[in-house]
């Protein structure tokens, strides 16, 4: 059963194509991280999912309903964290809790107040005067109190220092797994995602480069470094590598092939090397390897 189904999404800003025939699903109970460089369509996708943008063609469904016409009952099942932890900053923590509680019959304020008790804020302090980290805890507390089935978190790490980022991730991961929640999350800080997500979807301009469980991706996507016998040697790895960078005699390339397959390929192409090394990658390394540095 899917919480989110997007089918054949195509969108343009003016004449600029964002993506064409993009399709993906998010299984219930999974935490999916959407990764992509700036301008690849992450925010566009979030906006379509939340009904704030009508795609040029195609559709997204959340719990079977088109996101352009979500019913109040379905919206009640979705928790939405806006990029930068935006909230009604003219309210204080009591006012905002009172405001939201009126919309959700199953509102559970206990986790909200538990988080608020850790913040060093006064009861009447407006959210606008809080630090970004404190605001993130307010936004997180409100989502936990709403207790939605699906959480859409748009760039949750923006503006947070490492401590708050870690706090946010650990809370979210524990909550999502314990309560069987579905999470759709984007972040610019990929090292955070590694601790949080089950599945990864990597977007590049106009297309999806990878969508699979993050463990599977990290086990199958590899980086190899070789030192050529001669810096002038031509290196053609088009048959196996998704990305290659060559500086003098050093060649760094990324591939879904195994070590044996790579070695066989190098031999078949007559590429001579002095050293061969498989480098262990973090998710961030793998992301850069797949999408390139520029």
């Amino acid at each position: 059963m899917y919480a989110i189904e997007c089918k054949n999404l195509t969108h343009y800003y003016g004449k600029k194509l964002v993506y064409e025939n993009l399709s993906f699903n998010v299984e219930e109970g999974k935490i999916l991280g959407l990764l992509g460089k700036n301008g690849t369509g992450k925010s566009t996708t979030i906006n379509i999912l939340n009904g704030f943008l009508q795609p040029f063609s195609g559709e997204c469904l959340i719990y079977g309903e088109n996101t352009q016409t979500l019913s109040p009952d379905t919206k009640r099942r979705i928790g939405f964290l806006i990029e930068g932890h935006i909230q009604y900053s003219f309210m204080n923590i009591h006012q905002i809790e009172k405001f939201y509680s009126g919309f959700y019959p199953d509102w559970n304020s206990a986790p909200y107040w538990e988080l608020m008790s850790k913040l060093k804020v006064t009861p009447t302090q407006k959210i606008s005067t809080m630090s970004c980290g404190q605001r993130s805890q307010v936004a997180l507390g409100l989502i936990l109190a709403q207790d939605p089935d699906l959480l859409i978190l748009d760039d949750f790490s923006m503006g947070l220092d490492p401590g708050y980022r870690r706090l946010f991730i650990d809370y979210m991961r524990e909550y999502a797994k314990a309560e069987h929640k579905t999470v759709f999350v984007t972040s610019h800080i990929i090292q955070d995602m590694e601790r949080l997500i089950d599945d990864v979807m990597i977007m590049d301009y106009n297309k999806i480069l990878a969508q699979q469980p993050v463990d599977q991706f990290m086990n199958t996507f590899r980086q190899f470094n070789i030192t050529l016998t001669s810096p002038e040697q031509e290196v053609d790895l088009d048959g196996i590598a998704v990305n290659i960078e060559k500086v003098k005699d050093k060649v760094e390339f990324y591939t879904y092939s195994t070590e044996d397959e790579v070695k066989n390929y190098l031999t078949s192409k007559g590429i001579a090397y002095n050293s061969f090394e498989e480098k262990k990658m973090s998710l961030e390394d793998a992301f850069i390897g797949l999408t390139r540095k520029y």
């Binding site: 704030f52 919206k75 979705i78 935006i86």
Partner: peptide, 18 residues
């Protein structure tokens, strides 16, 4: 004005009402 700063109106439109 507070609804337009940072497109905060998104929060309002996301509430479970029409």
């Amino acid at each position: 004005f507070p609804e337009t700063v940072n497109k905060r109106i998104k929060l309002t439109f996301h509430l479970p009402v029409s």
